[in-house]
């Protein structure tokens, strides 16, 4: 495999590829090693895709987001700093950020439609917002978040999976912004108690 530096990559490391840690692979990816990149994809694509589907609700958009995130990993592998976050967390943060960008773009378009179109469109776009909110909250699979009080879990899900701000969540749940902040704070505290302190989560 020829890398971006014209050097040989993964197959020349002398170690079985599956024994390489993510941090080793990301270094090779930084040198343009496609095999290392493919291996990283194989390790983390299910988690990345699952998160994207959860956030966006449709598989086509999720594919785009995952593709963009992995390409960003490929291009910025050299900027990865071990110790700040695991490679997996770094990648999933990229997936999540891109998912949020996409959700917010869709919302911005909806708002623009609100301004430009008729009353019927306004009603429809409100429905769109509500659907996005419900998608962020809802899931058929029981999760660790469901061990939290329902209102805390809902606020956390809206913030994390939907990228909604405090004030947007307050509007949707029809509670004061301060209440939303409190629910998120307590919910996160509860999650922390369940996963332990840093390093004990996975």
């Amino acid at each position: 495999m020829v890398t971006r530096d014209g050097r040989m990559g993964l197959r020349r490391t002398g170690r079985p590829a599956e024994n390489l840690a993510d941090e080793d692979l990301i270094r090779l990816v930084g040198d343009g090693d496609e095999d290392a990149f493919a291996l990283l994809y194989d390790r983390h694509s299910v988690a990345a895709y699952s998160l994207a589907v959860r956030m966006l609700g449709d598989r086509e958009s999720a594919e785009d987001v995952v593709q963009d995130a992995f390409l960003a990993v490929y291009r910025s592998a050299r900027t990865y700093t071990p110790g700040r976050a695991s490679v997996r967390s770094w990648l999933l943060a990229m997936v999540r950020n891109r998912g949020i960008d996409r959700i917010r773009t869709a919302r911005a378009i909806t708002r623009r439609q609100q301004r430009l179109e008729s009353e019927a469109a306004v009603a429809q776009s409100r429905d769109t917002q509500a659907v996005a909110m419900e998608r962020a909250i809802g899931s058929d699979v029981r999760s660790r978040l469901d061990d939290l009080p329902g209102e805390q879990a809902a606020a956390l899900k809206l913030a994390y999976y939907g990228g909604f701000s405090h004030s947007e969540i307050a509007q949707f749940l029809e509670v004061p912004v301060g209440t939303v902040k409190g629910r998120i704070r307590l919910g996160l505290h509860g999650l922390r108690a369940r996963v332990g302190e840093p390093g004990g989560g996975e």
Binding site: Y49, L51, L92, S139, D140, Y161
Partner: peptide, 27 residues
Amino acid sequence: AARAAVDVMAHDVPVCEPPPELRARLL
């Protein structure tokens, strides 16, 4: 610590297998 707790949410989702074409397209 807050980030570690939030990380849990990234994994707390129903598992979905990406389509094989996505891997091919990406590579």
